[in-house]
Design a binder for these strands. Structure first.
Lengths: 149, 149
DNA sequence: TTCCTTGCAAAACCTTTGCACTCCA
DNA sequence: TGGAGTGCAAAGGTTTTGCAAGGAA
């Protein structure tokens, strides 16, 4: 019986990395959710429990965890990166008006993926791919009042 | 007989905007290509011909042109925005290893677009959508030597 | 003890903004 | 001429980096 955190720590050690407080903290926050959090979101939560952990450490930790495949990041449309656990491959639909994110299973992209590989030799990278558009609500109220941001 | 630049200038005026040196310069650079250039790329080229045009003006100009639909921008994976003319709707395949960009026609996404609309009420926004993955060359040499950036 | 990690501070990077001056229509 | 557009300088937000101190194995 393993908790998700224990599993992640094991992955860490298995890669020859040390299980430090900062790394545990980052993993904790990501496991607790929400599923997509920016470095700053994560830092804010961590600082409540471990005020000594610095933002730059969080960036370095996220980088480290990403390198071993434990987590992944996506750019949801306007630069700021958000991170999520690497376990559940999915894609992101991002509303360019309200910023909401819909997760959709990879399978929806299977046929597109095949087409791109065949026609362009291009290989979709799983879980790292943001699709911009309009969510239902914003599409309904249309784009005349608010700013797409 | 109209040059592309004249057409764009006409669009500008038709929107009640003034055809200034800066706006002409930005349009010139975008028309000359390459098709995807960052604000900084554009500024570098412009500064050779019009050294007095400031980077901030270029940002403002790009914003203006985008608001009237003359141009479009995409975030190609790591924050930096690139701009292109709005005439030819296409999508972008970006290699997350070497950064190369492949343009593919919108039609390739037609069935995906339909699925997303039906199943999630999500409406793909044309021309504003970057797909990350690996280009043929990078996929072939695999990811052990270079950094995905 | 070793050297991987971290805290801190500073810089780097890209983009935006306020303000007064300029210039297009 | 009048108001849109611009140059300049400064700030803003996010992310990276150098270095010396700290801590896990």
């Amino acid at each position: 019986m393993n908790t998700p955190l224990e599993d992640k720590i094991r992955e860490l050690k298995h890669q020859g990395l040390k299980a430090t407080v900062a790394r545990r903290a980052v993993l904790e926050v990501l496991i607790e959710g929400p599923s997509h959090q920016s470095a700053d979101d994560i830092a804010t939560k961590i600082s409540q429990r471990y005020p000594e952990i610095h933002l730059s450490t969080i960036y370095r930790t996220l980088d480290t965890l990403e390198n071993i495949g434990s987590i992944d990041h996506v750019h949801l449309g306007h630069g700021r990166a958000v991170y999520h656990l690497g376990d559940d491959p999915h894609q992101h639909l991002v509303c360019d008006r309200c910023g909401s994110v819909i997760e959709v299973p990879n399978e929806i992209f299977a046929s597109l993926s095949k087409t791109l590989a065949n026609d362009y030799g291009f290989h979709l990278r799983r879980s790292h791919f943001a699709v911009l558009g309009r969510c239902q609500a914003c599409e309904a109220t249309d784009g005349s009042t608010a700013q797409p941001r």
